[in-house]
Simulated scan of single mutants.
Amino acid sequence: MTESQSHGFLFEEQVKQGISKYLDSVTINYTNKWDIPPISVKSFKFDISKSNNRVYFGSIENMFKIQDGFFLALIGYEQKGRVKEVVFSDFIFIEVKDLQNLKGELELKELEMLSTKIKSFKEGFHEEAREWYKSILPEYSMKTSFQINFKVDSKKQRRIQCSLTIEELYKKLKRELILVNKLNINNIDSNPRERNTLG
């Protein structure tokens, strides 16, 4: 595990340790196969002066395969030197209707088709891959609230992820975004993440 990945696991450990009281406080009508729905922990850089703070959900195909409600633990932090200082945290139950509202009219089979297509571009054909996805992106982006993020580099990276601004997420969930550390997450010592520049 790289240091750029480890901070997510450190935040996740804190959520696991203190989650029971939040589970007890949420009333759920269990209509799915889980006794306790899964918990997704998302930590992300948060700039209090900006309105485009973004939550990254990973693979868009995996997101669209979810058919049940789940808990979303959010941790927004500011990078101050070596310290990730928690600005806010929240614990939300995403109901099936909420998830469907976020997905919109975009269908999993369309995403699978896009995934197959982007993976068909071999190593060295990254410029062609980028030209292709930029040409089709508007058509599919208008169908969903998620931002569709194609990941293509000059080597073999060919995948599709998704994200949402925190403001759009709360708007869609009809919740008020309050900058309070509701989960009492501690700051962690962790260097700024260094992202690879795509070739």
Rank of each mutant, 00 (worst) to 15 (best):
K171P: 06
I118A: 02
F146T: 03
E128I: 06
Q157P: 06
K143V: 03
F150C: 04
Y170F: 15
I136V: 14
E131P: 01
Q157T: 15
K119E: 08
E123Y: 04
K156G: 15
M142W: 05
A129I: 07
W132V: 07
S141Q: 15
R159Q: 15
F146A: 10
K134G: 04
R158N: 08
Y133M: 07
P138Q: 11
K151L: 12
L173N: 13
F121L: 10
A129Y: 02
S163Y: 07
F146M: 11
D153L: 04
E131H: 07
F150T: 09
W132T: 10
S135K: 08
S120T: 08
K155S: 14
K134T: 09
V152N: 05
S135R: 03
Y133S: 03
E128G: 00
Q157F: 09
F121N: 09
E123L: 10
K122H: 11
K143P: 05
K156P: 01
K119S: 00
F150G: 02
I136Y: 07
G124Y: 01
M142I: 13
H126Q: 10
L173H: 10
K143I: 00
E167W: 10
Q157V: 15
L169A: 04
I166L: 14
S154M: 06
D153N: 15
K156H: 12
E139F: 14
S145C: 04
S163M: 00
E128H: 04
K117M: 02
I118H: 08
R159E: 13
L137P: 04
M142E: 14
F150D: 08
A129R: 00
K134R: 15
T116V: 00
M142S: 14
